[in-house]
Simulated scan of single mutants.
Amino acid sequence: MFNWNDLTYFLELARQSRLMPAARRLRVDHTTVSRRIAELEKDLSVKLFDRKPDGFVLTEQGHRLFAIAERIELEAGEIQESIRAAPSAPTGRVRVASMEGIGAFYLAERFAELAEKEPGIVVELVTERHLINLTKREADISISFVPLSGQRLVMRKVGQFRLALYAAPDYIRRRGLPQTVDDLPAHMFVDYVEDLVAIQPVHWLLDVLEPANVAFRSTSMHAQQNAIARGAGIGLLPLFSAKSNPRLIPVLADEVTVTRDIYVGVHEDLEFMGRVKMVLRHLTDVFKRDADYLTKL
């Protein structure tokens, strides 16, 4: 009989494809992961992984076990909710992945609202420049500006946000205020670091122009906003962040309108888990409630 605990090591290695990342996720040494996988293969008398130069790849038998182990993982995760939490509200941690800007300037406050209403749920907000892989369980829920692709993912468009050009009074005093879109090429801009843009729709300034004069670049939208507010140049910012700084003045608000859709994604195995369902419902509600805040100056 195999050790049921070994399925945890199997699932993580299958999702990460390498020993070190799997070990970090499990908070053990990589040799432990290797040993537990070897024991599982011995107990089941099957080869679960092919060891390739670029990592561990599931064999046919490994794929079969992966599907079964995922179902076991899901059922195990529901035990506490079904037994201990019933009939009270769902409890537990839900990891939500998103981009840094919307995470810091918008989502953090909305999850604080959820914490007040549902103190049993702890949201872990993970912000990254790249898209999180829900299939590998890097997060339970994803909030992104593009729909994710992957097996057994459920994606929904839940809203939209607008971006507008902004500048600070210091910049306007020095360089003047553009009167038309044709005036923009002569101005200084704040922009992303071009070769480090992981998700192309985030490089939204290109929807307006490719600036010839850039005073400051950053991979961080928060840093860009601070630079714009200090007078470094004009920048394209989401309304949900720019509204937080009264020093920012809209530029050509009627002429320049850029929008992005907001998508919420979840693996279909987690969609109806109580605590995940609660967070998904909250997100749907706040994006609907804040539609004007997100899209109107």
Results as ranks from 00 to 15, higher is better:
residue 3 N to E: 12
residue 4 W to K: 12
residue 6 D to F: 10
residue 18 R to N: 11
residue 20 M to K: 09
residue 20 M to Q: 14
residue 27 R to T: 00
residue 31 T to M: 14
residue 32 T to R: 10
residue 33 V to F: 05
residue 33 V to Y: 04
residue 35 R to C: 04
residue 37 I to Y: 05
residue 40 L to M: 11
residue 42 K to I: 02
residue 50 D to G: 01
residue 59 T to D: 07
residue 65 L to D: 05
residue 67 A to K: 13
residue 72 I to A: 15
residue 75 E to K: 14
residue 77 G to F: 01
residue 79 I to T: 09
residue 80 Q to E: 15
residue 87 P to I: 09
residue 89 A to G: 05
residue 90 P to N: 10
residue 92 G to C: 12
residue 93 R to F: 07
residue 98 S to K: 03
residue 102 I to V: 11
residue 102 I to L: 12
residue 103 G to C: 05
residue 104 A to K: 15
residue 109 E to M: 12
residue 111 F to K: 00
residue 121 I to K: 07
residue 122 V to S: 13
residue 125 L to C: 11
residue 131 L to I: 15
residue 138 E to H: 08
residue 143 I to S: 01
residue 146 V to W: 05
residue 153 L to H: 10
residue 161 F to T: 04
residue 166 Y to V: 07
residue 167 A to K: 02
residue 175 R to H: 09
residue 176 G to R: 06
residue 176 G to Q: 07
residue 176 G to F: 03
residue 178 P to A: 08
residue 182 D to I: 05
residue 184 L to K: 05
residue 187 H to A: 04
residue 203 H to N: 12
residue 204 W to I: 07
residue 206 L to S: 11
residue 206 L to Y: 08
residue 208 V to C: 12
residue 213 N to E: 02
residue 214 V to Q: 01
residue 215 A to G: 15
residue 218 S to V: 02
residue 220 S to Y: 10
residue 222 H to M: 14
residue 225 Q to P: 01
residue 228 I to H: 01
residue 236 L to Q: 01
residue 243 K to W: 02
residue 244 S to V: 05
residue 247 R to T: 13
residue 249 I to M: 12
residue 250 P to G: 03
residue 256 V to D: 11
residue 258 V to Y: 06
residue 264 V to M: 14
residue 266 V to C: 10
residue 271 E to P: 00
residue 274 G to M: 06
residue 275 R to Y: 01
residue 276 V to M: 04
residue 283 L to S: 04
residue 283 L to C: 06
residue 289 R to P: 01
residue 290 D to Y: 08
residue 294 L to H: 08
residue 297 L to F: 06
